[in-house]
Amino acid sequence: MADVVAAAHEDPGDLDRALEEWAGSVRLTLEHRVDRKDIVRFAVATGNTDPLHHDPAAARAAGYADVVAPPMFYVSLRTAVFNLVPLGELHPEGTPWRDAPPIDFTQAMAGEAVAELTRPFVAGDEVWCGRRVEGIERKTGRSGHLTFVRFEYRYDDPQGAPFAVEHFTRIFR
C-alpha cells in the first residue's frame, strides 16, 4: 500500500491508474439475510420504540410477515455487510483498508448521501448488497488535497427488485 501511495504522488498518471484499480477492487456483491435481531438492534440503538420494529405479533397484525425495519435501516446494512473483514484488515482509524483509496489521508468524512427507498426491509428478507465506485474527484484547497469518492450501494432481493439504492460520498483529507 505504501509503495502505491509514494508512486501515485510522483506521477498523476500513476495515481489515476491506482485509483482505477482500487475502484475495481471494491466492487462487490454480498448476500445478507436480514434477521430479526438486525432490526431490533437498529431500532433500540436509534431509540425507535414503535412495536412494528420490535414485536412480530404487532408487525403481523399490521400486514407484515415479521418485524419491519425503520425507513433508514439501510444505513446499517452499508456498514454491517461491507465492514465485516478480518481484524488485521482494518485501518488504524477503524474502517477497512480496502475501502480507502490508495492515497495519503488523515481523515475520512461522510459527505452527501442520496437514497431512494422502494420498500421496507422485513425480517427474513434475503438481500443482495452491491457496491461500486461511481466516480472519484480530486480537489486541492487551502487545507490541502481532498478526494471525493462517490459510491453506489444497491440493496435488491434475489430477483433483482430493489429495496433501496444509495449514492454516498466519502471525503478523504
Binding site: 430479526r36 435481531k37 400486514g63 407484515y64 415479521d66 419491519v68 422485513v122 425480517a123 427474513g124 428478507d125
Partner: peptide, 17 residues
C-alpha cells in the same frame, strides 16, 4: 394502503433478542 409484505413464506428468524 396496506404495507408491502415481507417474504411470502412469512418466516421469521425465531431469534429475537
Amino acid at each position: 394502503s396496506s404495507p408491502v409484505a415481507g417474504p411470502a413464506t412469512g418466516r421469521g428468524t425465531g431469534d429475537a433478542r
